[in-house]
């Protein structure tokens, strides 16, 4: 009776074994030809995505650092240019000052020399005048004494002397 119940339910040993074998074959085929390759590919894809993201991050960082470096260089160049310009301006200024000083000194020296020359000329002229004036005075006195008391004569004498003196001076 128990056995009949089992068959009524459908228990059948060969079927059971067939299902077991069937499942194991399915398991083997799926594991070898489907799960393993697919899992490997999923892993590979995960790996690839992770690498790509990392590479993208790295590239972004590199770009940022490159940008920074370029900015640095530009700033540096600008600073350098400024420095060169400053130097140039300073040099020009110094050159100008030097040249002006030199010119002034030369002018001063020239003026000084001219002044000294003039002084010398004047001194010698004065000397000369003084010398000839003495002579003139003596000559005039002689003449005055010679033709005394003739007022007009005196005057004309004096005028003559003076005129001579003038001529002398001019000469």
């Amino acid at each position: 009776m128990v056995l009949l119940g089992v068959t009524e339910l459908g228990i059948n040993l060969p079927s059971l074994i067939a299902y077991l074998v069937n499942f194991i074959i399915l398991l083997g085929i799926l594991t070898l030809f489907a799960y393993k390759p697919l899992m490997r590919m999923l892993d590979e894809r995960t790996e690839r995505i992770r690498e790509s993201l990392e590479a993208a991050d790295r590239a972004r960082e590199e770009a940022a650092s490159a940008h920074e470096a370029i900015q640095e260089q530009i700033t540096e160049a600008r600073r350098e240019g400024q420095r060169i310009m400053d130097q140039t301006r300073e040099a020009a200024e110094r050159f100008r000052t030097e040249e002006m000083d030199k010119a002034r000194q030369e002018a001063e020296a020239f003026v000084e020399r001219a002044r000294a020359d003039i002084q010398r000329e004047r001194d010698s002229a004065l000397q000369e005048v003084r010398a000839s004036f003495g002579d003139l005075a003596i000559t005039a006195a002689e003449r005055v004494i010679r033709s005394s008391l003739d007022r007009t004569a005196h005057e004309s004498l004096i005028a003559q002397v003076l005129e001579e003196g003038e001529t002398l001076r001019r000469g």
Partner: peptide, 26 residues
Amino acid sequence: LGATEIAVTNTLLSSWFTTIVLILIF
């Protein structure tokens, strides 16, 4: 069917069908 009687049943056929479909898909 008897408990040890050997035969291909309709349910066994359907399990083969399922197996084939699964293998094809995967």
